[in-house]
């Protein structure tokens, strides 16, 4: 993607405080929650949230049949540009979810999701950099 570079979330990264704050699941497909700045991925019957700050890039691919694929890469400490992210260095003993891929029966939904994630990521990044500028 074009949105490379580290994102430095200010403060502690929390998408949802409470289990019931999650949006209602829709057909167990990938959802983008703009209000809470999170993406929700259907993993084993559960909608698993990832804060937009953990998302490094997203891409999709359509094959000849009507199936398509979406690949979401998350920030990890080993990746280039991620070295300076304080959030990533705080947890040397952790294991990171690095990449999640799905195949989908609905190419339109997937291209919409890719667009929404990219937009949300951009909004978040520019807001965070504005905050950082104001702080200096």
């Amino acid at each position: 993607g074009t949105n490379r570079g580290p994102m430095k979330p200010s403060g502690d990264l929390i998408a949802y405080k409470n289990v019931n704050d999650l949006p209602p699941p829709r057909d167990f497909m990938i959802q983008v929650d703009q209000k809470n700045e999170a993406i929700l991925l259907p993993i084993y019957g559960k909608m698993v949230p990832f804060h937009i700050a953990t998302v490094k890039s997203v891409s999709s691919q359509q094959d000849t049949s009507r199936t398509c694929y979406i690949r979401i890469i998350l920030n990890t400490p080993g990746a280039p540009f991620a070295q300076n992210d304080p959030n990533l260095q705080k947890f040397p003993d952790s294991i990171y979810v690095k990449e999640v891929s799905f195949h989908s029966k609905d190419p339109r939904h997937i291209s919409e999701v890719v667009q929404l994630i990219k937009t949300l990521r951009k909004q978040f990044a520019s807001r965070e950099s504005e905050k950082a500028e104001r702080a200096t």
């Binding site: 057909d27 990890t76 990171y96 990449e99 799905f102």
Partner: peptide, 14 residues
């Protein structure tokens, strides 16, 4: 009944 199904997941172990 799910539209999007998990295909791959990878973990990074520092």
């Amino acid at each position: 009944n799910e539209k999007d199904s998990l295909m791959e997941i990878s973990f990074h172990v520092p």
